[in-house]
Design a protein around this nucleic acid. Sequence first.
RNA 1: GGGCAGUUAGCUCAGUGGUAGAGCGGUUCGUUUACACCGAAUUGGUCGGGGGUUCAAAUCCCUCACUGCCCACCA
Length: 728
Amino acid sequence: MSEISKAYEPQAVEEKWYAAWQNEGCFTADPASPKPGYSIVIPPPNVTGMLTLGHVLNNTIQDVLARRARMKGFEVLWLPGTDHAGIATQTVVERKLRKEEKKTRRDLGREAFLERVWEWKEKHGGIIISQLKKLGCSCDWSRERFTMDEGYSRAVQATFVDLYGKGLIYRGKRMVNWCPVSLTALSDEEVIMKPQKGVLYRMRYELVERPGEYLEIATTRPETLMGDTAVAVHPDDERYKHLIGQHVWRPFPRLQIPIVADEHIDPQFGTGVLKVTPAHDKADFEIGQRHHLEILDVLNPDGTLNELAGSEFAGMDRFVARKAAAAKLAELGLLVAEEPYQNNVGFSERADVPIEPRLSLQWFLKYPSVEQSLEAVKSGEIRFRPERWVSTYEHWLTNIQDWCISRQLWWGHRIPVWYRKDDESVIHVGLEAPADEENWRQEEDVLDTWFSSWLWPFETMDEATRAKFYPTGDLVTGPDIIFFWVARMIMAGYEYTGRKPFSDVFFTGLIRDIQGRKMSKSLGNSPDPLELIAKYGADGIRFGLLRIAPQGQDIRFDEKVVEEGRNFANKLWNAARFRQMQGPSAPDADLSGLPLSIYSIDLLAKLDELIAKVNGAYAEYRFNEIAQSLYDFFWSEYCDWYVEAAKTEISGSDEAARASALAVMDTVLNRLLRLLHPFMPHITEELWETLGFSARSHGKPFVLYSDWPEPVGIAALVGEAAVKAAQE
RNA sequence: GGGCAGUUAGCUCAGUGGUAGAGCGGUUCGUUUACACCGAAUUGGUCGGGGGUUCAAAUCCCUCACUGCCCACCA
């Protein structure tokens, strides 16, 4: 038994035990184990990612679940990995290329560029994995997966081929969300609406059939008027009814365009007249379809105007053109007014610029197994916690549009489609190119990243692993990716395994700063978890965060909570140190036959209550309650009350009383260490060893391999009456 | 425009029918040999407003206000 230092210094201890666990293969899951299986798949962080507090919360919860399951006798698989994160990763590498070599990806060409991305990935990618290790995560690292591993990639493409075969995937020219910076289409989920301060321009178009008379129109986007192919009014609008079917002059390029009637127009808004630009607005596009209007695309992919907009606008950025168009209207005497106006504009989630609705040729998916996925969550076959997310899920799933799955990127899973060179309408869909490969051209586009992550729960496993560990148990993730990921995994699970991919989903809250703002890089309000770990220890940050993490409620983060976690670890350390000073402790103290003081009986009764309470809280995923209960019991009941009271007996001359007090301490401490282990794995492991409790472990001498504690059963030992008496 | 959360001590938050809680902060003590990353004591709230149900409401119901988030093709 070694001497314990006065203050707990987590760094060396944490490193030592993490290495020991890994060397002993403690995290390795054995599909052949006779024990029942329990599994979690990690929400794969972006390969470009750095550990955030959100990751800390999320992964600590997963680690708690995994470690407790191990102690409860399950064979545990916590499967880790990373996501290739198409746009994010490609952007990082492109930026580096531009900065260091002043080149674009097109300068390199597809193959050379992809080589660079792989190089980057090998060198800088996956930093987050080593950061998760610092946190103490008990993932089976021998099974680490990447969404672009060879086998995984093949599965992704095979899924495409399969869904195509089922008639669920089609290619079509549709209105999509286009990001003018990333130069790719995005799914609806990747667009974020933001209120923007802008201007509502009131302009007037002259009536063709009634020269000198004008129709007043309100718009926020005058730069698209060159693409107008109609104006629309409500069919019942008395003001304009007589004009339906007539024409107005689009001022530039000057053109006669019809006045059409459409139910979509709100007579109350603006002047009740809408300029219809079918190529640059989703609603306008639909109006265009209904009235067979011409689609006039006046924008380039990068958001500049093209020559169809007129030579004076060609090449001009859309926002510059907005002002220029307004100025030209004013010059022509057609601008009636400019009013400050606030409206919602869709932004690209990644590039943070307004997206452009754009008509383009893309691949779409009609979601599979929708009904079953809906039913599974409604019926509780898959349980959501907190339950309120069920309605969010339902609402989305009952209103989904087809998923635009193609991306105009290079980094990702290339769509397994070939077009015949002499006739592009002839296509081949399959994992391999046709035999006469030279006559075919493969689709340039790659698949949306989420088209690969929706297979994560089962494609990360081989046959034997799936037999043992699939469906997985708990999924721990943020509610922000309920549509992106959770819902799609459920659909893929049913479609491809015929089973649910997981039984329980626990949605964590979002971590905000002390002012309630979202953590973000630009605000600089996101503390670096690694610095916190260095300062307070991984156990400190784990315990501190979980203690204030209520069920799915957002969390305001203050470094104080981590400090408290550290203090708690220190207190634990010193309580063990105090016990050690009184002589060797017994791994399995026998309390029967010992003269138990009323303090002892009271404490043991409270310990039994604690264990019951903790088990109950686990059943409901109330992690903050578990942490708080352990904290209160240990600090108030054990340290402040029991140990102080027992000091009399410990230093007294009554040997039996002394032995009894120490035995009670051992009984409490070894259970407490086990109860705390999922939350604070390192320090409990260290103390388990120093106090000599390893005899209670199974196989390997770790607390990690000990049993989840059973109650002492104090009522049975001394009788209900004695317990009651002690507690009064 | 819909939907969902939240509003409890100076601060951050627990508490879902039965005499208001924790941590931090403040104040006052304490070098008693586990711990100052500590201990003892103490301060502090008409539980967002209004109405209702009940013997009893922070807790259930209604309503209002404010804040946040999600969904939504009003230009």
